[in-house]
Nucleic acid binder design. Structure first.
Lengths: 222, 222
DNA sequence: GTTTTCATGTAACCCGTTACATGATTCA
DNA sequence: TGAATCATGTAACGGGTTACATGAAAAC
């Protein structure tokens, strides 16, 4: 019952749901796939994995595998400890997925939640996106009033910092607007979901993302 | 010698350099002026203040002031403990200001450093801005390669998250480019600095910010 | 055969928050 | 007079990192 990190636990369960992995690989996935937002060290990850095993959500499969299936087949090289999600773990993860409480739209949590939107039902997606948006909007409100009160007493750099900060938040709000609109647009369409889970897949279909693929042009004017 | 937070210490010294304050007010300033980036609690601030006093960088002035000058005159209401920067503290802060080590351009530090650019000499400003920029550029590089490697294995949401993340970083790089250019432009001009310090003011002149005042229009299309 | 990368862990520490305890001042 | 805000503090805990210790497999 010790180490409960919330976000790390969530991410680990989510990644292991796709396929079993050992700690080292897991960490790399955490720091790229879910990247930008968070980088966990081994000192955090390994104890967390042990705790999840203790909870019955994961099982360890060592090289001299008790269940046949040598880990070699999975990774191409001998892996020490492969972690696999148990049915209980899967159930637990899906329960976490279905929650959309206020903490789900805080800075740290939101990124991870979004990363697993593919697994998330559409109504939960909507609640998280809208929650996040209103969170940012109230933050903007605060910044605006506080700026209005102190405007003239601040030097140019502080002001510029404030301005840039607000613009960043505004930009994220616009992003959320687009996403929410896409979700709304894809509401009644029921397109076929690309990667359907075998069982207990509670996610609806993939909604509709802006579909602007290709990821930010390499050379933006400069 | 205990509690050394770095960023909090820096911000506290910087704010107190402008004028003496008590803890409560200090915290509000921390969470607005330097806002967006960080919000400290009393549980962090007060112990830090004590430590700074123990270091000889601050002095406490209680209501029954030993130095005359009742705190009432400063705030309009009776304040309990007013903290004032000592000469040693000022000296220390200016030394901190002059450093531009690699940690100065990490996410957490950069914001605070920038907030006190008004007090910072131009060459240090330049080094910090350029350091920050190259830091972001190498991060972009990593993201690009990692994205290229895993592109097709990721679902749309993860991809969109990645894309948005990269765009955010690219945007900050462009911002830095503008700032750096402004600094370069204001290099030989020697405009009069708006708020000159009485003594030991090592900051050159204010350089030149984009001068686009007015802080982000209230209604951006939506 | 040595270096690099893969792979797993632990103990000490750091920075910060939460929740609590306390009390003065202002305002309705 | 009672509620809200101002104001100062502390102890317990939380979540994470760093540095270290260890060793196997791959690459050169």
């Amino acid at each position: 019952m010790s180490r409960r990190s919330g976000i790390l636990e969530f991410a680990v369960l989510g990644l292991l749901r796709e396929s079993p992995m050992h700690g080292y690989e897991l960490r790399k996935r955490l720091n790229t796939s879910l990247g930008v937002f968070r980088a966990f060290s081994y000192g955090t990850l390994y104890p967390c994995l042990k705790a999840l095993v203790a909870n019955g959500w994961l099982v360890e499969e060592t090289s001299g595998a008790p269940d046949g299936v040598p880990a070699t087949a999975l990774t191409g090289r001998r892996a020490k400890i492969v972690y696999r999600l148990t049915p209980a773990g899967k159930e637990h993860f899906e329960e976490l997925l279905s929650h959309s409480g206020p903490d789900a739209w805080e800075d740290e949590h939101f990124g991870v939640r979004f990363a697993f939107f593919g697994q998330t039902s559409r109504d939960v997606r909507m609640r998280v996106l809208e929650g996040r948006r209103s969170r940012l909007e109230e933050r903007l409100e605060k910044m605006r009033t506080s700026l209005a009160r102190t405007r003239e007493r601040l030097d140019d750099y502080t002001l510029e910092l404030q301005r840039h900060g607000m613009e960043s938040v505004e930009r994220e709000v616009r992003w959320l607007n687009e996403l929410i609109e896409s979700e709304r647009a894809g509401r009644e369409q029921r397109t076929s979901d690309p990667a359907a889970q075998d069982e207990s897949n509670q996610s609806g279909d993939a909604g509709g993302l802006p579909r602007r693929r290709g990821g930010s042009r390499p050379d933006p004017s400069e």
